[in-house]
């Protein structure tokens, strides 16, 4: 009899756990996501119009139009993982902000919008003033979390209008790391595999980074992401971008330069 009680209790625990897990994975719904978007904008009365649901490898999103841009809300966590503000691109021709001021603005925004930004080991991997010709310019800041020498998918991108200091766009992805971070393939081995993808290439420059990527829906893979440049042939740049599974050694992507 006692055994039956224990078995019944165990079954109950399993049933509750499964139900809870199902609850975690269930989409939050458009209405809740809309409120999350309004919270993100610090404007509870903002007009937020549902546009579509988009499924990408790293997650599912409710996409909302906000009049002068878009907000992407993670359909399962409710986190706003992307926002664009088209009107903030105005007056971006004259560079009034210096690098330091622009970076401060970008960092302040990242700290406000990305939960745990200060606690995570976020490394600034790119900071540039990018010209878009007659369409103006923007300061571009990219942070990525680094764990044991591996760049994780946890990233923050903030683009700043150099004329006004307004935020033009934001991307912030935050995920638990679920794949092993120890490669089976060394950097040199990966570079050798990469060079083999471009027969006859005379390599002039190469970069290799260990990164965690969502190479399939909801599946993290430890990869070597390699750029390889070779001497031009027929007036065309040789080489390109190569992605290799750092544990299985499989080549996942070969993308030659245009």
């Amino acid at each position: 009899m006692k055994r039956i009680y224990i078995l019944a209790t165990l079954c109950l625990i399993i049933a509750v756990s499964v139900a809870a897990a199902a609850g975690i994975n269930a989409p939050i719904g458009v209405d809740t996501a809309k409120e999350k978007a309004q919270d993100f904008l610090n404007a509870p009365d903002a007009t937020v119009q549902y546009q579509k649901t988009e499924r990408l490898n790293q997650g599912e999103y409710y996409v909302f139009g906000i009049g002068d841009g878009q907000v992407y809300v993670n359909a399962h966590t409710g986190a706003v993982e992307r926002a664009t503000f088209d009107s903030a691109r105005k007056d971006s021709h004259e560079i009034r902000l210096d690098q330091a001021a622009a970076e401060a603005a970008a960092r302040a925004y990242a700290e406000e919008k990305y939960s745990g930004f200060a606690e995570k080991s976020m490394r600034l991997i790119e900071s540039n003033l990018v010209s878009h010709g007659d369409a103006g310019s923007e300061y571009l800041y990219i942070w990525r979390e680094e764990k044991n020498g591996v760049l994780t998918p946890n990233t923050v991108v903030v683009n700043v209008n150099p004329g006004t200091g307004e935020i033009v766009s934001y991307i912030g992805i935050r995920r638990e790391i679920k794949c092993p971070l120890e490669p089976a393939l060394s950097r040199d081995e990966a570079l050798k595999v990469a060079a083999g993808q471009f027969p006859g290439i005379r390599v002039t420059d190469a970069t290799a980074n260990l990164t965690v990527e969502y190479t399939r829906p909801d599946a993290q893979t430890l990869t070597w992401v390699i750029t390889m440049k070779g001497e031009p042939e027929g007036d065309v740049l040789q080489g390109g971008l190569i992605v290799i599974d750092a544990r299985a050694g499989e080549v996942l992507m070969v993308s030659p330069y245009l």
Binding site: L56, N57, I171, E213, T223, V243
Partner: peptide
């Protein structure tokens, strides 16, 4: 360009 950033590989 932002649509491309979060497709793998990130960048």
């Amino acid at each position: 360009k932002d649509d491309c950033y979060w497709h793998w590989p990130i960048g």
